[in-house]
């Protein structure tokens, strides 16, 4: 089967890969590019474990076909830390014990980053609705919400 050649910027680096047209962007990132930080929890857009940023917008990478990534700039959880220094969200998730098994964590971090990039001072309700597309079965969300609140505070310099 002929494969399509894709050129993207992933986590700041120009990246090329080959893919079949029917392959999801999630599978292309995981199998072709070797970035397994984004997870597949459902493959149908219902859990958010595969969340990544595509041109600064949060997307379920399981719902995108890999060829749609051509010419875009992608950020995955692997690109969240800045040359080894953790993003405040990552740090606050750690300090606030906002993960148990951690499978949902990459998706929550990306969705939360997208929220805070747009809205640096969200209310609890706004956070809960912004993260409503991300399932976590372990934590009951309490500590995740608190970690996002704390990261928002820190990022605002408070």
């Amino acid at each position: 089967m002929p494969r399509t050649h894709i050129t993207t910027v992933i986590n700041g680096d120009e990246t090329e890969f080959l893919t079949e047209d029917s392959t999801s962007l999630l599978n292309a990132l995981r199998d072709e590019v070797g970035l397994t930080g984004a997870k597949e929890g459902c493959g149908t857009g219902d859990c958010g474990a595969c969340s990544i940023l595509v041109d600064d917008r949060v997307n379920c990478s399981c719902l995108m076909f890999a060829p749609e990534a051509d010419g875009t700039a992608i950020v995955t959880v692997e690109g969240l830390a800045d040359s080894g220094e953790l993003h405040p969200l990552q740090q606050c998730f750690l300090e606030g014990a906002a993960l148990q098994c951690g499978i949902c964590t990459p998706g929550f971090l990306m969705a939360a980053k997208a929220l805070l990039d747009k809205n640096p001072d969200p209310t609890e309700t706004e956070i809960r609705y912004a993260l409503a597309g991300n399932l976590c079965r372990c934590t009951g969300y309490d500590k995740i919400i608190r970690a996002v609140q704390e990261a928002a505070r820190e990022m605002r310099g408070q």
């Binding site: 070797g34 692997e78 993960l99 951690g102 964590t105």
Partner: peptide, 23 residues
């Protein structure tokens, strides 16, 4: 006490290898 978990950094940076992550 409530220190940071030992496997935490790998889990917030996407490095931790779950069941489907091995090739």
């Amino acid at each position: 006490t409530r220190p940071i978990r030992p496997d935490g950094v790998e889990k917030v940076t996407g490095k931790a290898r779950f069941g489907a992550d091995l090739t």
